[in-house]
Simulated assay, not measured.
Amino acid sequence: MSTKTFEERLTEDRRLVILRVLNEQIEYRANSSVITVALNHFGHSISRDQVKTELHWLAEQRLLTIDDIGPVIVATLGERGQDVARGRAIVPGVSRPGS
Rank of each mutant, 00 (worst) to 15 (best):
R96M: 11
S47R: 00
D68K: 08
D83T: 10
N31E: 10
G87I: 15
T53Y: 07
T3G: 14
G98T: 06
T65N: 08
T36S: 05
G70D: 03
L22D: 04
T53D: 14
E54G: 03
R15P: 01
G87H: 08
S33D: 09
V84W: 11
T36P: 01
V37Y: 06
E27C: 09
M1H: 15
A38T: 08
T11M: 09
G43V: 15
V91M: 13
G43K: 13
T3Y: 15
V37H: 06
Q82T: 12
G98W: 11
Q82G: 01
V74P: 02
H44Q: 06
Q50N: 06
S32T: 15
R9I: 14
Q25A: 13
G70A: 05
L22Q: 02
E8V: 04
L55Y: 01
S33V: 10
S99K: 15
Q50T: 10
R80Y: 11
K52H: 03
L63G: 00
L77G: 01
V51L: 03
P97M: 14
N31W: 06
E7D: 14
R9V: 10
L16N: 02
K4Y: 07
V51K: 00
K52F: 02
T76E: 13
L16M: 05
D83M: 08
S47K: 01
A75K: 01
T11N: 07
L64M: 08
T36E: 06
L39N: 01
S33T: 14
L63T: 01
R96H: 04
F42T: 11
